[in-house]
Simulated scan of single mutants.
Amino acid sequence: MDFVSGFFYVFSVVLLFAALRVITARNPVHAVLYLMLAFSQAAALWLLLKAEFLGIALVLVYLGAVMVLFLFVVMMLDINIDAMRAGFWRHLPLALLLGALFSIELIAVLWAGFPTATVDAAVATKAMHAPDHNNTHALGVLLYRDYLYPIQVAAVILLVAMVAAIALTLRGRKDTKTIDPGVQVRVKASDRLQVLRVPPATVAAADAAQEEQA
């Protein structure tokens, strides 16, 4: 066994352990940290497979932005752990069924292979080890030429998800003091400020009463 295979098994074992701890950790902060560890090990596997662009993108996008955002959100929110775990055992059979179905589908796809592929594996491997081979260029050709329509469909789905997330956060709450900009534009000075004239005699009488009391 060469050193590449040894690193592959080490990274795979750490990745499986981190993925298991993500779903079994009782503290959500620890779960996010284990998820960051899992992403780092996946990036290392991408680098072993000579997919440098995917590995660096995984580190920069997920570890550098998304997971840090998740970590800050989890640490800032007051999450009730007991309320989240209340229905764990009730939903466990459904979760196991869906996990088993997903695993069977993955095994079936990997076992049957990809019959729609038109590139010979030997030719692809030879081209990958060529001196003038560029992984980023090859990935760009696959994404934006061969699989252009699936990429556009995925982009539309992500756009709909982003709009839905923004719409869910814009719910009207009674405890917030929101101001309508249209009302602010139409307001007049007389509606906001009213000057009252106080007669001098009233002020003098009030001062005299205070002196008598003193």
Results as ranks from 00 to 15, higher is better:
residue 119 V to W: 04
residue 16 L to R: 11
residue 212 E to R: 08
residue 168 L to V: 11
residue 186 R to C: 04
residue 119 V to T: 12
residue 87 G to Q: 14
residue 186 R to H: 07
residue 130 A to R: 15
residue 167 A to D: 06
residue 47 L to N: 13
residue 74 V to G: 07
residue 81 I to T: 13
residue 195 V to R: 12
residue 54 L to S: 02
residue 74 V to D: 03
residue 8 F to K: 10
residue 182 G to W: 02
residue 98 L to I: 00
residue 131 P to C: 12
residue 109 V to S: 01
residue 143 L to V: 01
residue 210 Q to E: 11
residue 138 A to F: 05
residue 83 A to H: 12
residue 196 L to Y: 14
residue 176 T to I: 09
residue 98 L to A: 00
residue 54 L to H: 04
residue 68 V to F: 02
residue 193 L to S: 13
residue 84 M to G: 07
residue 123 V to Q: 15
residue 129 H to C: 04
residue 30 H to K: 15
residue 1 M to V: 02
residue 145 R to Q: 06
residue 184 Q to S: 05
residue 16 L to A: 14
residue 66 V to K: 04
residue 153 V to I: 14
residue 193 L to V: 15
residue 110 L to A: 04
residue 206 A to M: 07
residue 11 F to H: 15
residue 192 R to F: 10
residue 97 L to Q: 00
residue 205 A to R: 11
residue 144 Y to S: 07
residue 155 A to V: 09
residue 18 A to K: 07
residue 12 S to G: 09
residue 106 L to T: 00
residue 70 F to I: 07
residue 150 P to A: 05
residue 100 A to M: 01
residue 158 L to G: 15
residue 17 F to C: 14
residue 117 A to S: 11
residue 3 F to S: 06
residue 144 Y to F: 07
residue 39 F to K: 04
residue 138 A to S: 09
residue 52 E to H: 12
residue 90 R to K: 12
residue 36 M to K: 14
residue 130 A to T: 08
residue 19 A to E: 04
residue 67 M to E: 01
residue 12 S to C: 06
residue 194 Q to R: 15
residue 104 I to E: 00
residue 171 R to H: 09
residue 103 S to L: 03
residue 168 L to C: 05
residue 163 V to S: 13
residue 211 E to K: 10
residue 195 V to W: 14
residue 119 V to P: 03
residue 174 K to G: 09
residue 83 A to V: 06
residue 181 P to G: 01
residue 157 I to Q: 12
residue 126 K to L: 05
residue 144 Y to L: 03
residue 115 P to E: 07
residue 195 V to F: 10
residue 61 V to Y: 01
residue 34 Y to W: 14
residue 192 R to Q: 13
residue 63 L to H: 08
residue 195 V to P: 08
residue 190 S to F: 06
residue 149 Y to T: 04
residue 80 N to T: 05
residue 50 K to W: 01
residue 119 V to I: 12
residue 173 R to Q: 07
residue 122 A to R: 14
residue 169 T to S: 15
residue 141 V to K: 11
residue 153 V to N: 08
residue 51 A to E: 07
residue 73 V to W: 08
residue 99 G to N: 05
residue 92 L to P: 02
residue 117 A to K: 13
residue 70 F to G: 01
residue 85 R to Q: 15
residue 102 F to V: 00
residue 59 V to L: 04
residue 3 F to G: 04
residue 183 V to N: 09
residue 211 E to S: 06
residue 18 A to H: 14
residue 145 R to A: 03
residue 132 D to M: 06
residue 113 G to K: 11
residue 43 A to M: 00
residue 46 W to S: 13
residue 199 P to F: 01
residue 165 A to C: 14
residue 42 A to M: 05
residue 199 P to C: 03
residue 22 V to F: 08
residue 173 R to D: 05
residue 83 A to S: 14
residue 88 F to W: 12
residue 12 S to R: 10
residue 11 F to P: 03
residue 69 L to M: 03
residue 34 Y to C: 06
residue 12 S to N: 15
residue 187 V to I: 08
residue 6 G to M: 05
residue 150 P to W: 07
residue 39 F to I: 11
residue 14 V to F: 06
residue 55 G to M: 02
residue 71 L to W: 01
residue 138 A to H: 12
residue 5 S to Y: 04
residue 116 T to C: 06
residue 172 G to V: 08
residue 146 D to R: 12
residue 112 A to Q: 09
residue 173 R to F: 10
residue 27 N to G: 05
residue 139 L to I: 10
